[in-house]
């Protein structure tokens, strides 16, 4: 067993582990969006930024070392996360009150956790398409945060390869691997994990909308540090 010192508190971990794995096992909440324990780490959202032995790193792709000092709640680290969260909001088109994921959305929940309520940055208002060609699943790219959880779920859990990323820079976007580029012509099945893994309201199974009324949803009841990652299969 090795020891990690997170904000002064010692936690034990079994190497090899990343900082976020060590914290997760020990029950220490470390905000994140693109990381899930059962998929390969990705390192794109950067919301899990911490200071480890004086250096700022993404906790999901940095190995925990014995005796390492991790700052998770330092003011400047939290400020940086708030900026990152605001960046994710303004990059897309997130109208939370009109979104059926509201209350179950991990972006919204992490933002609340860190006290980001009204975005202070200029919105980009990018024109982004909606794909309703699949009988059971809708994609609304206005809300995609490019976490690639669906990309990984399809490849690593479903044994398929339904999603990829296209474009680059601010034009990077999710693409569907089908001849036509439409979801309806892809191999995606409603029972695939990729259909349910989206932490925001970008990939939504049909006919689930508003089954749990707003006010009684996951993050309406408990904040994310208690409630954990967005559930798969709930809207």
């Amino acid at each position: 067993m090795s020891v990690l010192i997170v904000d002064g508190r010692e936690i034990e971990f079994e190497p090899p582990a990343t900082i976020i794995e060590a914290c997760n096992k020990a029950g220490v909440y470390l905000p994140h969006l693109c990381w899930r324990p059962d998929f390969s780490p990705h390192g794109s959202c950067r919301v899990c930024t911490v200071r480890a032995n004086g250096r700022e790193v993404a906790a999901c792709i940095t190995a925990a070392e014995d005796g390492m000092r991790v700052e998770n709640t330092a003011d400047d680290i939290v400020e940086k996360r708030k900026t990152l969260l605001s960046m994710l909001f303004v990059e897309g088109n997130h109208v939370c009150p009109a979104c059926e994921k509201s209350g179950n959305c991990q972006l919204q929940a992490v933002a609340y956790y860190h006290g980001v309520t009204a975005p202070t940055l200029t919105y980009f208002y990018p024109p982004r398409p909606l794909d309703a060609s699949h009988p059971d699943v809708v994609i609304d790219l206005n809300r995609c945060i490019l976490c690639e959880l669906c990309v990984r779920a399809s490849r690593q859990s479903d044994g398929k390869n339904v999603f990829s990323i296209g474009g680059r820079g601010i034009d990077a976007h999710l693409v569907v691997n089908s001849e036509t580029g439409r979801l309806g012509d892809s191999e995606l099945d409603i029972d695939d994990r990729a259909a349910h893994i989206c932490p925001v309201g970008a990939i939504l199974p049909r006919r689930g909308a508003f089954q749990t009324p707003i006010g009684r949803r996951k993050y309406d009841i408990d904040p994310i540090d208690v409630a954990g990652d967005a559930s798969e299969g709930e809207t």
Partner: peptide, 9 residues
């Protein structure tokens, strides 16, 4: 390349 939030946005 558009991979990570800070640089992309």
């Amino acid at each position: 390349c558009g991979f990570c939030t800070p640089c992309r946005v």
